[in-house]
């Protein structure tokens, strides 16, 4: 059987045991995570709006994405307002989801499977809105994985900016296959 042959060949050919490094990762030194995060979102091609609380978000979404009809706000609205839209995900124009945590250094926002509601929503929608609570910001990826360790058991994704490509002559084009834009609301009393 191939499995046994492969494992046997590895046993025969592998080098002498080498230890893992004792320390993995580096502590971040960003003095203001909000500023760093905002800068990272901008670099990743997204837009960031800071708000004190959630109440103004639905209005701000309509303002930022005018003319959108098929909006599934899975965070702020009752399922009755969007349930019919979810039958045809390919027609979704805007999906609003909430991230679990976010990384200041690179603008990556972590969504667990339940945060996506359905795995395909963050990808198939034309425009994606993600809500991040300020207290969930961490400095870098090492710090993120320490927190995420016990969150992962099915599917999860870091999203940093809208879908993009530079496959034609290294020209950056926003909106490859996934969302054409990413709007992030950073929510917190001090932002």
């Amino acid at each position: 059987m191939s499995r046994e042959k492969i494992l046997e060949a590895i046993k025969k050919n592998k080098p002498a045991p080498k230890e893992l490094p004792e320390v993995i990762g580096f502590a971040s030194t960003y003095t203001n995570l909000t500023i760093t995060f905002a800068e990272s979102i901008r670099k990743a091609g997204g837009e960031l709006i800071t708000v004190q609380d959630m109440t103004s978000i639905p209005a701000r979404i309509r303002q930022a994405l005018p003319g959108m009809q098929r909006i599934a706000d899975l965070v702020n609205e009752s399922p009755d307002t969007y349930r019919h839209l979810l039958n045809d995900p390919a027609s979704l124009e805007v999906v609003v989801l909430k991230g679990r945590l976010a990384v200041a250094e690179n603008g990556a926002i972590w969504l667990h499977e339940s945060d996506c509601v359905n795995r395909v929503y963050p990808f198939i929608t034309q425009h994606l809105v993600l809500i991040v609570e300020q207290h969930t910001l961490v400095g870098n990826m090492h710090e993120a994985y320490v927190i995420m360790g016990n969150m992962m058991n099915s599917y999860g994704v870091f999203i940093a900016g809208p879908s993009k490509t530079a496959d034609i002559e290294q020209s950056l084009v926003i909106g490859a296959h996934g969302a054409r834009s990413l709007l992030v609301f950073l929510v917190g009393p001090g932002v």
Partner: peptide, 29 residues
């Protein structure tokens, strides 16, 4: 899992100069 922190910080920066790829998807089930 913690090793992903090291590799994801290196991968996109080395590849394209991005801090991270737009999507880093973790499939466990």
């Amino acid at each position: 899992t913690e090793h992903l922190g090291v590799f994801l910080r290196l991968l996109a920066r080395s590849a394209t100069g991005q801090a991270i790829t737009t999507y880093s998807s973790h499939f466990q089930r």
